[in-house]
Design a protein around this nucleic acid. Sequence first.
DNA 1: CATGAATGAGATTTCATTCAT
DNA 2: CATGAATGAAATCTCATTCAT
Lengths: 229, 229, 229, 229
Amino acid sequence: MPDAATEPAKRGRPRRGPDPERFREIVDAAAEVFLEKGYSATSIQDISDRVGILKGSLYHYVRSKEDFLYRIIKDVYDEAIDDIRKIGEGEQEPLARLAAFIRAHVRFAAAHLTAYTIQLREFEQLSAERREEIRQGGETYVEALQAILEDGQAAGLVDASLQVRLASIIITGELNSMTRWYSPKGSLEPDQLADVYVGMVLTSVASEAAVTKAGGVEALRTEFALGQG
Amino acid sequence: MPDAATEPAKRGRPRRGPDPERFREIVDAAAEVFLEKGYSATSIQDISDRVGILKGSLYHYVRSKEDFLYRIIKDVYDEAIDDIRKIGEGEQEPLARLAAFIRAHVRFAAAHLTAYTIQLREFEQLSAERREEIRQGGETYVEALQAILEDGQAAGLVDASLQVRLASIIITGELNSMTRWYSPKGSLEPDQLADVYVGMVLTSVASEAAVTKAGGVEALRTEFALGQG
Amino acid sequence: MPDAATEPAKRGRPRRGPDPERFREIVDAAAEVFLEKGYSATSIQDISDRVGILKGSLYHYVRSKEDFLYRIIKDVYDEAIDDIRKIGEGEQEPLARLAAFIRAHVRFAAAHLTAYTIQLREFEQLSAERREEIRQGGETYVEALQAILEDGQAAGLVDASLQVRLASIIITGELNSMTRWYSPKGSLEPDQLADVYVGMVLTSVASEAAVTKAGGVEALRTEFALGQG
Amino acid sequence: MPDAATEPAKRGRPRRGPDPERFREIVDAAAEVFLEKGYSATSIQDISDRVGILKGSLYHYVRSKEDFLYRIIKDVYDEAIDDIRKIGEGEQEPLARLAAFIRAHVRFAAAHLTAYTIQLREFEQLSAERREEIRQGGETYVEALQAILEDGQAAGLVDASLQVRLASIIITGELNSMTRWYSPKGSLEPDQLADVYVGMVLTSVASEAAVTKAGGVEALRTEFALGQG
DNA sequence: CATGAATGAGATTTCATTCAT
DNA sequence: CATGAATGAAATCTCATTCAT
């Protein structure tokens, strides 16, 4: 995976590549502006203003405006994929795994709020080839969720009549929608938000047996909570 | 609400403005393109190409590109507000009202998929004044939802420990996220989707009492379903 | 031969196409500047200045700077090909055909001096696809010349030991080089120049027999001359 | 001839300038690229890529892009002038001198193909001062040729009715056009090509007397040939 | 010598908008 | 109403050149 596509401005032979810290600084500036104005409505000028550099100078780091978007999205995407893989490696119980999945997602989205939001909003603005390349990343959130729900059904803990694929899509949308309003500057900590999500999602799919086992819906709703932040 | 801004090209002589059908046709074309490419990434050319007209000609119908966006959003927004007002006027029982609210939302979003999606995605691209003007429309979805949930808590049917404001935001996001994947061309009918949403949302907020009353979570999950479409 | 490639700015459906006279005016202006400064050294600004228009306005007529070059070259090329085809349709005698070919070439180059010069100089600046497309035009000057010389050898009028292919290339270069210095503003008429070319080229390839038949080299050198202009 | 302009980076301290071999290497790289893409279409990047160096580094050798062009052209030009001077110093007979001139030209062009081609094509891209400076080099090819032809007419060996100035220009164009197709990689040796040129050019200007003296055109055409290479 | 960051100017192209016909 | 030419501003990108390290 040499990823030559954005290896900033590698044309000829030499080039150790530019200072990676500076590069990150610049990509982060781009991300901020993309978040505020939207990718298409952002000009290269906007980015260079944010960095405090002339617009032409940005092309030291990147070959096109789209490269910025690509970098931002590729990076979160790769990390997100890693994250998914690790989830529930310990947990065997499906509802516990579901809870862990949700919490991981909320934490991740909160930790990479800017980039993750951009990925959700602007993915379609990437060129077809790059969209394809990134999508190959493998298993998606939806698929991972679906697998957990299926395990849950097999274990009798998830409502057997649930349309698992559809539910996964709905839950994913529910979780992702936090990017539309969540701010790290607010008083709501990621883990507190995760507690709420976990409670709502679990009860929205739990089987009768799961509810009973937990001692009722309200009990189930707090069973996997971390408590006050 | 004089709304002169987009009253298509009313200037100078006593003109009744252009053929309203043609106008709708053109605004719909604009909406299609905005949906496909995003507002900022759409050029006036793109729209005129879709209509089969030269770009200069569009200015007979509209005074600026933003007018298209405004028209599209204003129209759905107004209809949506009307819709909300009607909800549950009959229903007195909070969970029934919640179910009705959800169903109405799904139906509405499905019926106005393009415009509603654009409203969600591109609202921020409107000028500050127009955003302001539109927002004055009144009570939002979130507030309406919140009111229902509060009634539910008062009636002991919604989990008393639920953070109602937060839950309303989450549920709204969950419902709105259907615009990211739902297609009227698929085999899933709006009412079928609503059934699923209703089941998941209701159980995600229901109190112990509500569950018991319904005869268990699974029962509650289908209590307000319309059944097969 | 729809030739959509430069059909000026046809994006959507409609478009009868712009005023062809204005288009020609603009392409001619571009040709002038290309001739003076060279294609690569010419900016779109240079062209628009020459036309007396803003640079952006040029994109009404053309989709890229290269389109100008393409138009210029394609047009002369097509006419040149037509020209070649007609040559010597009457003449049966090889040396007469050779003389006619040379005269036609000189007249053509003089008549289309700007465009023909650009074609010779800047052909390589076209994109690979366009070069390919144009080359398909068919038989080239060199091939046409070669055919005439071969006929001449068969008839014993061209030196049998001549390397016909090589001679054709050399003669073509000799003829084309007039674009490097010829000016219609000078006192040398195209037909006078053609007389000189005809005399020099014919004697440079003539067989012993041809010379004898003409009554000597000097006689041969004037045999196909039109005389004073 | 102080020529400080490109005396590679001699400023400030007592420096002998950079390694001349490295300098030549770099200028040669520039020449290659100029030949392939044309001077104006070549970027400093292109050159530095070819050398395998970063573009900023080129400015250790040269003060501007034009300096490369100047170096290349100046060098061939100077050598070419030297070459002309030597021609025919031995030969007294005009046709022999003409043959020697042609052979020398072909050899020279073949030996310095890249630089000579660039000189022909890109001379006009030099600044006015540098063009002037170089032209002062003295007598040009055309003038040298013209002198030979005039001697030939005086000796009765060149067609008396020939417009000598015009013929010189034509022959020069004929010879120079070899740069448009000749390749040292092909099987045609410079001397073989020179044989052909000599034969064609001599018969194209020879007087009746010269032909008779040689024993016919065909004989004249091979009289000064070196034969198979 | 070479690097790599940056500059500043300019190149090509796009695009919303206007307007005479 | 529609056209098509044009505007004027801005957007993306290129590039020769400089310079501290």
